[in-house]
Design a protein around this nucleic acid. Structure first.
Length: 577
DNA sequence: ATTATATTAAACAGCT
DNA sequence: GAGCTGTTTAATATAA
C-alpha cells in the first residue's frame, strides 16, 4: 500500500560504497537524502489523513448510535491502529537496523534493556552529534598526521557545525554508552574475545555487515582485517557514517512523531470510550515500548486480533505470544479480571511509563484492584509505609480517575485496608501508617497466576513446573521492570525492590514459608523490629509467620508525600456517574 | 451452580 | 458536633 520508492539507507550506502566520495557525489547523496525526507513527509501526511479519517469515523459512530455498521467502523478503526502500529514497528526496526549497521548500537541478548533504552526515548540529536564528534575528531587527528588535503567537511551539511579543530584524540570508550564505535578499535577486541566476535555489530553470519559491503569473511580475524583495510577511517567511511547518521536522525524524528500521534489517538479514543458503557471499543494496540523492546525479533504480523475491554485502559497488547500473562502486572498486582479477561486478552502494562502518563491525565479507571494500588502506593514510598491520607494523595496524584467521586473510592480504600490481611496498620508517633505484608499479599497471588491453587503445590514439589511460573515472572520482569510510575532507568533503586518482591512471590507461592533469605525490606534497620502498638489480629491464620513484617514504630515521615496535596479535597462531582 | 474475589454502599465506633 | 479513621456487614457483579 505504502511502499514509496524511497532510496533505502542500504542503497545509499551502496552508492557510497562504490568509491570515495567526491563533492558532487555528496551533493547527489544529499539530494537523495532530501528525497527520503520528502517521502517521510508523505508518510506523515498519510498518517494525518488516517487519523482524520479515524476521527470522522468516531464522529459518525457517535451520531449513528448503535447501528450495525458500527462494528464495521470499529473494525476499520482497528485496522488503522494496526497500520499505525505496524508502521511504527517497521520504523523501529529500520532504525534498529540502521544503528546496528552503524555500529552505534550493540544488541546483546544478555542485556535486554540497556541498548534498547535509548531507542525507546529516541536518540536525541545531541547524542548523535557527540558520536559524530568522536569519529571526526579522531579522524582529523589521523588526517592531520598523514595527508593534509582538506577532507570533506561533512559537518557543514547538517548536524554539527563545530568543525573538529582539536587534534587531540578523543576516543573515549565510555563516551559511547549506546553502543560501541567500532570504527577505530577493531584490534583491541580481536583475539582475546573470541566469543565477542559473535556479537560484533558489524560481523555476522560470516559476512561483513558494514553498510553495503557484505564481504565474506571466514572468521573473525579475517573480518577484522577486512574491516581495517576496507573500512578504515577515511573519507568514505566517514561519509557513510554521516549519511547513516542522518538517516538515523530522520528515523528518530519520524518515530517520535509517530509515537506522539499514536498516543494522541489512544487518548482520544479512550476518552470517548469511557462514556458509553455498553459499547465496547475493541482496539488492537501494541505498545510502543513493545516495539522498542522486541523490535529485533518480533514479527509484526503477530498482532493479536482479540478485542480488549470497554473500560480497560488502552492497554497495549503485547505481542509476545506465549510468555506474557496477566502476571505481567505483577508489580502492580492483580488486574481487575472482571474487565480484563473478558476477551481473553492478557492485559499487560507494557509501557508503564506511557500508561502512567495516560492514567495521570485521562480519566480512565485503572484496571487494577484497590488492593493492588494500595500496595503499590505503599511500596513506592521510601519507608514502605503510608498514612491513609498519603494513600489518598497517591491515588489522586497518579490517577485522574480518582480525582472525582472521592467519597466512593476513599471508602473503598479504607474498606480494602481493613479487609485484606496484607495491609497492616502500624501505630506511629504521628498516628498510624499502613504497611504491606508481602507474604500475605502474595498468598492471594497464586490464584491469579493460574486460577488453580493446586498448581502451586505442584510447582512446589516438582521444579519442572517452575518453568511456566518462571516464564511468567520473567515476562513480568521484562514487561514491568519498572515499578509503576517510575521512569525507566536501569539504575532505579526500585528495581531491586521489584526483584526481591518477585523472589518473594516465588518463595511465597512455592514454599509458603518465610525463608529469611529473602529480604524484602531493604534499608530496614533491626531497630525496626519493635512491636507495634496495634496490629490487625488475625484469628483465621494462626500459622502466619509475621516475621517479615516491617513494624516500624519510628515516625520517619517522608516529605515526599507532603507536597502531594495538589488534588486533595478537590471538588467532587458526584453527579458524573 | 458454586465459590471466591472485587466493588460499592453504608452503619458504626473511636478519636481529634 | 464535624470530620477523619478504621471496622464490619451487606448487596452486587464477575470470573474461575
Amino acid at each position: 500500500m505504502m511502499t514509496p520508492q524511497v532510496i533505502t539507507p542500504q542503497q545509499m550506502q551502496q552508492i557510497l560504497q562504490q568509491q570515495v566520495l567526491t563533492p558532487q557525489q555528496l551533493q547527489v547523496l544529499l539530494q537523495q537524502q532530501q528525497a527520503l525526507m520528502l517521502q517521510q513527509q508523505q508518510l506523515q501526511e498519510f498518517y494525518k489523513k488516517q487519523q482524520e479519517q479515524l476521527q470522522l469515523q468516531l464522529l459518525q459512530q457517535q451520531h449513528a448510535g448503535k447501528q450495525p455498521k458500527e462494528q464495521q467502523q470499529v473494525a476499520t478503526q482497528q485496522l488503522a491502529f494496526q497500520q499505525q502500529l505496524l508502521q511504527m514497528q517497521q520504523l523501529q526496526q529500520q532504525h534498529l537496523l540502521s544503528l546496528q549497521r552503524q555500529g552505534l548500537l550493540t544488541i546483546q541478548p544478555g542485556q535486554p534493556t540497556l541498548p534498547l533504552q535509548p531507542l525507546a526515548q529516541g536518540m536525541i540529536p545531541t547524542e548523535l552529534q557527540q558520536l559524530w564528534k568522536e569519529v571526526t575528531s579522531s579522524h582529523t587527528a589521523e588526517e592531520a598526521a598523514s595527508n593534509n588535503h582538506s577532507s570533506l567537511d561533512l559537518s557543514t551539511t547538517c548536524v554539527s557545525s563545530s568543525a573538529p579543530s582539536k587534534t587531540s584524540l578523543i576516543i573515549n570508550p565510555h563516551a559511547s554508552t549506546n553502543g560501541q564505535l567500532s570504527v577505530h578499535t577493531p584490534k583491541r577486541e580481536s583475539l582475546s574475545h573470541e566469543e565477542h566476535s559473535h556479537s560484533h555489530p558489524l560481523y555476522g553470519h560470516g559476512v561483513c555487515k558494514w553498510p553495503g559491503c557484505e564481504a565474506v569473511c571466514e572468521d573473525f580475524q579475517s573480518f577484522l582485517k577486512h574491516l581495517n583495510s576496507e573500512h578504515a577511517l577515511d573519507d568514505r567511511s566517514t561519509a557513510q557514517c554521516r549519511v547513516q547518521m542522518q538517516v538515523v536522525q530522520q528515523l528518530e524524528l519520524q518515530l517520535a512523531k509517530d509515537k506522539e500521534r499514536l498516543q494522541a489517538m489512544m487518548t482520544h479514543l479512550h476518552v470517548k470510550s469511557t462514556e458509553p458503557k455498553a459499547t465496547p471499543q475493541p482496539l488492537n494496540l501494541v505498545s510502543s515500548v513493545t516495539l522498542s523492546k522486541t523490535a529485533s525479533e518480533a514479527s509484526p504480523q503477530s498482532l493479536p486480533h482479540t478485542p480488549t475491554t470497554p473500560t480497560a485502559p488502552i492497554t497495549p497488547v503485547t505481542q509476545g505470544p506465549s510468555v506474557i500473562t496477566t502476571t505481567s502486572m505483577h508489580n502492580v498486582g492483580p488486574i481487575r479480571r472482571r474487565y480484563s479477561d473478558k476477551y481473553n486478552v492478557p492485559i499487560s502494562s507494557a509501557d508503564i511509563a506511557q500508561n502512567q502518563e495516560f492514567y495521570k491525565n485521562a480519566e480512565v479507571r485503572p484496571p487494577f484492584t484497590y488492593a493492588s494500588l494500595i500496595r503499590q502506593a505503599i511500596l513506592e514510598s521510601p519507608e514502605k509505609q503510608l498514612t491513609l491520607n498519603e494513600i489518598y494523595n497517591w491515588f489522586t496524584r497518579m490517577f485522574a480517575y480518582f480525582r472525582r467521586n472521592a467519597a466512593t473510592w476513599k471508602n473503598a480504600v479504607r474498606h480494602n485496608l481493613s479487609l485484606h490481611k496484607c495491609f497492616v496498620r502500624v501505630e506511629n508517633v504521628k498516628g498510624a501508617v499502613w504497611t504491606v505484608d508481602e507474604l500475605e499479599f502474595q498468598k492471594r497471588r497464586p490464584q491469579k497466576i493460574s486460577g488453580n491453587p493446586s498448581l502451586i503445590k505442584n510447582i512446589q514439589t516438582s521444579h519442572t513446573y517452575c518453568t511456566p511460573l518462571n516464564a511468567a515472572l520473567q515476562a513480568s520482569m521484562a514487561e514491568n521492570s519498572i515499578p509503576l510510575y517510575t521512569t525507566a532507568s536501569m539504575g532505579n533503586p526500585t528495581l531491586g525492590n521489584l526483584a526481591s518482591a518477585m523472589r518473594e512471590e516465588l518463595n511465597g507461592a512455592m514454599e509458603h514459608t518465610n525463608s529469611n533469605g529473602s529480604d524484602s525490606s531493604p534499608g530496614r534497620s533491626p531497630m525496626q523490629a519493635m512491636h507495634p502498638v496495634h496490629v490487625k489480629e488475625e484469628p483465621l491464620d494462626p500459622d502466619e509467620n509475621e516475621g517479615p513484617l516491617s513494624l516500624v514504630t519510628t515516625a520517619n515521615h517522608s516529605p515526599d508525600f507532603d507536597h502531594d496535596r495538589d488534588y486533595e479535597d478537590e471538588p467532587v462531582n458526584e453527579d458524573i456517574e
